[in-house]
Amino acid sequence: MHYDGMIIRPPSEADSILLQVTLGCSHNKCTFCGSFRDKRFTIKKDDIIFQDIEYARAHFPRQTRLFICDGDAMIVPMRRLRPILERIQDRLPWVERVGVYANTKGIGMKTDEELAELKSLGVGIAYMGLESGDDQVLADICKGATADKMIRMGKRVKQAGIQLSVTVLVGLAGKERSLIHAKETGRVLSEIDPDYVGALSLMLIPGTELHDDYQAGRFQLPSPEEMLAELGQMIASTHLSDGLFHANHASNYLPVRARLPRDKEKTLDQIAQALSGKIKLKPEFMRAL
């Protein structure tokens, strides 16, 4: 496989075929993210992509899932994306689900008919980074979208029959707006009603603008206990019809996996016990991105 630079994929795609179609992220301006700072966004040439599909055909006959890398494959124009997905269906017929990262710009560039076509071509799940439902936080981190746009684009993905996994970031608002961020994020998640929510806890990355703000005293990082209280408020404010809310990423201080609404009260009780010291939090040295 032809991989350029570090490959980023969702934790749930750990066993998937990783097909790199784009390099980097078309937005690449979020102040907290250092994932693609070393890459200029480009779409790889078809012949390289098709060579990698042939490699996967020869070497990965047992992987039933495929993830298209890098940061936001949804932004690839349909005239380029369609033949890639058709080639996957033709040459890798055992692949049951294709996953992609999707930002609001990429989703917005697709018509409803094109989103439905992506579903028919095997795209079964899209991962969208909401980060926060608070418009002030979204502006501060240069996300490039408002909460309203996040809601509209998330709903369009779901209406196309594509499963939606939304990522949120605990601690992103700092100390001052922590609970506002939590409540607003819960509100937006409730509006979108995704199939999955993945909550990560903020880890500051050297070389990012948010890390610079922290070192200069312009950003106050919440303590582990404050982040956990924020997570509790976020879950309490989130009302899903039947979604999985998990905060079991390596960055989190307390592993949480809850089916909402069924497990909400049990999960909030678990967080309360951790805040009271009855459940130990993960030590800092064990956290990772």
Rank of each mutant, 00 (worst) to 15 (best):
G5M: 15
M6Q: 14
M6H: 15
I8D: 14
R9M: 11
E13N: 09
D15A: 14
D15L: 07
D15Y: 07
L19P: 13
Q20T: 00
C25R: 10
H27M: 05
H27T: 05
D38Y: 11
R40C: 04
T42Q: 09
K44Q: 14
K45N: 10
D46K: 04
D47E: 10
I48V: 11
I48K: 03
E54W: 00
E54Y: 03
Y55F: 14
R57D: 10
A58E: 10
H59Q: 14
H59M: 04
R62Q: 14
F67V: 00
D72F: 00
A73Q: 10
I75H: 00
R79T: 12
R80C: 00
L81K: 02
I84Q: 12
E86P: 09
I88A: 00
R91K: 14
L92W: 04
W94Y: 12
W94V: 00
V95H: 05
V98P: 04
V100E: 03
V100T: 02
Y101G: 02
T104Q: 06
K105M: 09
G106N: 05
G106R: 02
G106F: 03
I107E: 06
I107R: 02
L115P: 05
K119M: 08
K119Y: 13
G124M: 09
I125L: 00
M128A: 12
L130F: 08
E131P: 12
D135G: 05
L138R: 00
A139D: 07
G144W: 03
T146M: 02
M150L: 15
I151P: 02
R152G: 06
M153I: 04
V157L: 06
I162A: 01
L164Q: 08
V166A: 01
A173C: 02
G174W: 02
G174E: 09
L179D: 15
A182R: 09
K183Y: 15
V197Y: 08
G198R: 02
A199M: 01
L200P: 13
S201P: 05
M203C: 15
E209P: 14
H211I: 08
H211W: 15
H211S: 15
D212C: 12
D212M: 08
D213T: 04
D213S: 14
Q215S: 05
A216P: 03
R218D: 02
F219C: 00
F219L: 05
Q220G: 07
E225V: 08
M227Y: 00
L228G: 09
L228I: 06
S237V: 14
S237P: 10
T238Y: 07
T238H: 06
D242G: 00
D242N: 11
D242Q: 08
A247E: 11
H249D: 14
H249T: 03
N252V: 09
Y253F: 15
P255M: 07
A258M: 05
R262H: 14
D263F: 02
L268I: 08
Q270K: 15
A272G: 13
S276H: 10
K278Y: 13
I279K: 11
L281V: 11
M286N: 11
M286L: 15
L289G: 03
